[in-house]
């Protein structure tokens, strides 16, 4: 049994323009200690998926159907008290913008200690000492004195370290990181990612890392799941996805990553934009933007199948390579036609 199992999750937002299906029947699982990436363009439903895991969605959003099981327990059926016990203690979250994620009027130390006190029966002094310890673990110099400083006295990178310390305070089994470096300077990004990697290994924590940047994912994750318009369109072990992407959308995403030694002036982007989730295209959601779209793509939605056998995998193994494209069920007349060029060190055009 996997640590986290998500099955047919559907999330809707009820807006004035209509019902937005932000997540439309996704299924995946994460094993203990595994690091899984969720990538895709803005609006694909990555953040909504993350929030669903902790039932943190607010009006007008709602989990309509599906199941989320954590460690065998039905998350959607938990009582308020059980949910509180899960949050922060077993599944913790790191958010995109650390300056918004921290409360400006409490010291960073208090905000970490508070998380410890919420789950463990400890004295204030113990919580304080453990918070200082955590600040040291996330490599904040002078941790004891910075404990009583306020978030605005920290730089963005240091703030995110505080948020990570907070998330790790109760040694969760799963750490959900929603674009943890997007709001930060690129020079700081590497340090934060490295820290996450080290700490995850040290605490044996599984990570779900959200990013719209495949480059960030490459170094950190065992597996990648690509999301498009509320669905998972491809999943594969990281290396395989990089060298052998199977879905045209993934190919487009890869082509738009800048790489070292890249001398293109302008990176190609996928033409068009993500569909309006109130009124999604018929058939394959990607077909209006897909250079290989055919009649079949307009008519029928492809299912997520094993790229070798063309058979939907009910319980995919971590190493399986799945994609949602008619190509793999032999329903395309012309087929896909792109070339993956691997340069030294692994590049792709």
């Amino acid at each position: 049994m996997a640590l986290l199992e998500v099955e047919d999750l559907v999330v809707q937002f009820y807006t004035e323009d209509g019902t937005v299906r932000a997540v439309d029947g996704i299924s995946y699982e994460i094993d203990r200690g595994e690091t899984v990436a969720l990538v895709g363009e803005s609006g694909a439903g990555k953040s909504v998926t993350c929030l669903s895991l902790l039932r943190l969605l607010e009006r007008p959003g709602e989990i309509v159907s599906g199941e989320i099981r954590f460690d065998g327990r039905d998350v959607l059926g938990l009582s308020d008290e059980e949910l509180r016990d899960l949050r922060g203690n077993e599944i913790a979250m790191v958010f995109q913008d650390p300056s918004a994620a921290l409360n400006p009027v409490y010291t960073v130390g208090e905000q970490i200690a508070e998380a410890i006190r919420a789950h463990e029966d400890v004295t204030d002094e113990t919580a304080r000492r453990r918070a200082i310890d955590l600040l040291e673990r996330v490599e904040i110099p002078d941790a004891a004195s910075r404990y009583s400083e306020y978030p605005h006295e920290f730089s963005g990178g240091m703030q995110q370290r505080v948020v990570i310390a907070m998330a790790l305070s109760c040694e969760p089994d799963l750490l959900v990181c929603d674009e943890p470096t997007t709001a930060l300077d690129v020079t700081i990004e590497a340090g934060i990612l490295e820290l996450l990697e080290d700490l995850a290994a040290e605490f044996d924590t599984a990570i779900q890392l959200v990013s719209h940047d495949l480059g960030v994912v490459a170094g950190l994750c065992d597996r990648v799941q690509v999301m498009y318009a509320g669905e998972i369109v491809e999943r594969a072990p990281t290396e395989e996805l990089y060298y052998d992407p199977k879905h045209p959308y993934t190919v487009g995403l890869m082509a738009s990553i800048p790489r070292i030694g890249d001398d293109r002036d302008e990176l190609p982007t996928i033409p068009g934009s993500m569909p309006d989730l109130v009124d999604v295209p018929t058939g394959c959601r990607f077909h209006p933007r897909c250079p290989y779209a055919e009649e079949a793509c307009r008519l029928r939605a492809p299912s997520l199948v094993d790229v070798e056998t063309g058979v939907p995998a009910d319980e995919p193994a971590p190493n399986d390579h799945l994609a949602a494209c008619h190509e793999y069920t032999d329903d395309l007349v012309d087929g896909l036609d792109y070339e993956v060029v691997v340069e030294d060190g692994g590049g792709l055009e």
Binding site: L51, L54, R84, L86, R87, G88, N89, A100, H119
Partner: peptide, 14 residues
Amino acid sequence: EGYVRTARAKGLRE
């Protein structure tokens, strides 16, 4: 504000 979500995600009581 974001800190409200963080506070809930930590497992604090409402």
